[in-house]
Deep mutational scan, measured.
Amino acid sequence: MASQGTKRSYEQMETDGERQNATEIRASVGKMIDGIGRFYIQMCTELKLSDYEGRLIQNSLTIERMVLSAFDERRNKYLEEHPSAGKDPKKTGGPIYKRVDRKWMRELVLYDKEEIRRIWRQANNGDDATAGLTHMMIWHSNLNDTTYQRTRALVRTGMDPRMCSLMQGSTLPRRSGAAGAAVKGVGTMVMELIRMIKRGINDRNFWRGENGRKTRSAYERMCNILKGKFQTAAQRAMMDQVRESRNPGNAEIEDLIFLARSALILRGSVAHKSCLPACVYGPAVASGYDFEKEGYSLVGIDPFKLLQNSQVYSLIRPNENPAHKSQLVWMACNSAAFEDLRVLSFIRGTKVSPRGKLSTRGVQIASNENMDAMESSTLELRSRYWAIRTRSGGNTNQQRASAGQISVQPAFSVQRNLPFDKPTIMAAFTGNTEGRTSDMRAEIIRMMEGAKPEEMSFQGRGVFELSDERAANPIVPSFDMSNEGSYFFGDNAEEYDN
């Protein structure tokens, strides 16, 4: 993207840094990872977990959730003011799984939030270390993106479920800051804005008074975040219109849905970061690795190297396929839920299948599930090659597409044709070009129609051997075009429920 120079890199967003050079960025990201790792080690000690239990991804998720809940100030305040039966607002906890007599047992633990905050700050040299908290939120978000298709949420806001490739980060909490905003897809931002506008339509006082002023500035800020994701002048001009509207209503909703559809071809720039579970960072720190000293990046080879040398386990339900569970977590670790499966298959070195073909449910185990038949197995999170994460949407291309997802959002900077089903997408653009945004709409449609099938995206960008740390010898991959490109292809993934 041309304006790259004016933006802070995501590592800076990730670490609240002012302008830093590459070495400083690597050190501050490393410091953040160190903090998460030290916190995780301490929690495993508190909970008396064995090494194996500490490497269980379900335990990692519970521990991450506990610290996120302990620092969720708004919710904590709300819980104190609106006490609900049987919930102690000062405590947080969740299921911890232990191996007892050759069987997995679930144990519900409860801790004072104050105590968890103390352990977290102690692991982070006394700081609140917001960057580390956001990092864990993005890992949870990436896992949700890989596990669930947001059909219901899309339909509720009037969008087409086939636009799911635009929904990265749709389950990120509001408090995820600049680093969170960077990884949100165009569809996620559109959905947040539509929800806001709908509230304004239904509630006369939404934009009024002292609160209304705050609401208005939040609305304009979200519009600017979305505008910054678009790469064409016409899309940005249309966002200006939406932002400046005196009284946002149905016309703005129409414009936003139009823009979301246009992003299936004229893709937005959305950041991709490899955020790993805390149970990967903990053992690495415990083994003596100093992330701050060595430096770390979320968008280069580092996460690949770390996963190459990590042992992570997962509980497996009786009829689940461990290899499929591994694929789910591998995609989440690489922030690749909406990437082209052919690119992923090449990088991973084994075939990556669409969601609907995987015999696996989510990673988390519900409290009512029976533990008797639970097994555990090693997650295979290694890769054959590594590639640089991208934040450009890439230019655009036609490809055989599917009944489910009709476009992709690249996660890796790797040369390819970008699949999208042009006739299906263009069919949504018939007729409606009147109104105050008509010239911009016409211009956007013209650009979409001009998108050429034979153009290559990320020209000359390749993948790298894991021994090639400096990215000196790019390998331009070859793809098996007979395979499906979309992950949520004609899909039956479970729906995400809060």
Rank of each mutant, 00 (worst) to 15 (best):
Ser3Ile: 00
Gln4Met: 01
Lys7Leu: 11
Arg8Gln: 13
Met13Asp: 05
Met13Arg: 12
Glu14Gln: 14
Glu18His: 00
Arg19Tyr: 13
Ala22Gln: 08
Ala22Lys: 15
Ile25Pro: 00
Ile25Arg: 01
Asp34Tyr: 01
Ile41Pro: 06
Gln42Ala: 00
Gln42Val: 08
Glu46Tyr: 14
Leu47Ala: 04
Lys48Trp: 09
Tyr52Cys: 13
Glu53Gly: 14
Ile57Asp: 06
Gln58Asp: 07
Leu61Met: 02
Thr62Tyr: 12
Ile63Asp: 00
Leu68Phe: 12
Ser69Asp: 10
Ser69His: 09
Phe71Leu: 03
Arg74Val: 09
His82Ile: 04
His82Asp: 01
Pro89Tyr: 02
Lys90Leu: 15
Lys90Trp: 00
Thr92Arg: 07
Gly93Leu: 03
Gly93Thr: 15
Tyr97Ala: 11
Asp101Phe: 09
Trp104Gln: 15
Met105Gly: 00
Leu108Ala: 00
Leu110Ile: 01
Asp112Ala: 00
Glu115His: 05
Glu115Phe: 08
Arg118Met: 10
Trp120Pro: 02
Gln122Arg: 02
Asn124Tyr: 03
Asn124Trp: 13
Gly132Asp: 09
Gly132Ile: 08
Leu133Tyr: 03
Leu133Pro: 13
Trp139Pro: 14
Leu143Thr: 05
Thr146Gly: 09
Tyr148Gly: 07
Arg150Leu: 06
Thr151Cys: 10
Arg152Glu: 14
Gly158Ile: 09
Asp160Phe: 14
Met163His: 14
Ser165Trp: 10
Leu166Pro: 13
Ser170Thr: 12
Thr171Met: 03
Pro173Leu: 08
Ala178Trp: 14
Ala179Ser: 04
Gly180Asn: 13
Thr188Gly: 06
Val190Lys: 10
Ile194Gly: 13
Glu210His: 12
Asn211Gln: 15
Gly228Leu: 09
Gln231Phe: 12
Ala233Thr: 15
Gln235Val: 04
Met239Asp: 04
Glu244Arg: 10
Ser245His: 08
Arg246Ile: 13
Ala251Phe: 13
Glu254Ile: 12
Leu264Met: 03
His272Met: 11
Ser274Phe: 07
Ser274Thr: 03
Ser274Trp: 10
Pro277Phe: 07
Cys279Leu: 01
Val280Tyr: 12
Val280Ile: 15
Gly282Ser: 05
Ala286Thr: 15
Gly288Arg: 04
Ser297Met: 10
Ser297Ala: 07
Gly300Pro: 11
Asp302Arg: 15
Pro303Asn: 07
Phe304Glu: 04
Leu307His: 13
Val312Met: 12
Asn319Pro: 14
Glu320Met: 10
Ala323Met: 03
His324Gly: 05
Gln327Val: 04
Ala332Ser: 05
Ala337Ile: 11
Glu339Ala: 08
Thr350Ile: 07
Thr350Val: 02
Ser353His: 14
Ser353Ala: 01
Pro354Ile: 07
Arg355Val: 10
Lys357Thr: 01
Gln364Cys: 06
Ile365Met: 06
Ser367Glu: 04
Asn368Leu: 14
Asn368Cys: 01
Glu375Arg: 03
Ser383Phe: 06
Ser383His: 15
Arg384Val: 04
Trp386Met: 04
Arg389Ala: 07
Arg391Gln: 06
Arg391Lys: 01
Ser392Lys: 07
Gly393Lys: 10
Pro419Ile: 01
Asp421Gln: 15
Thr433Gly: 02
Thr433Pro: 01
Thr437Arg: 06
Glu443Ala: 06
Ile444Glu: 12
Ile444Leu: 14
Met448Val: 13
Ala451Cys: 14
Pro453Gln: 04
Pro453Lys: 02
Glu455Met: 08
Met456Val: 14
Phe458Pro: 13
Gly462Arg: 12
Val463Pro: 09
Val463Trp: 09
Ser467Arg: 00
Asp468Lys: 08
Arg470Met: 05
Ala472Ile: 08
Pro474Ser: 13
Ile475Tyr: 09
Gly485Ser: 06
Tyr487His: 15
Phe489Tyr: 06
Gly490Lys: 09
Asp491Gly: 03
Tyr496Met: 12
Asp497Pro: 05
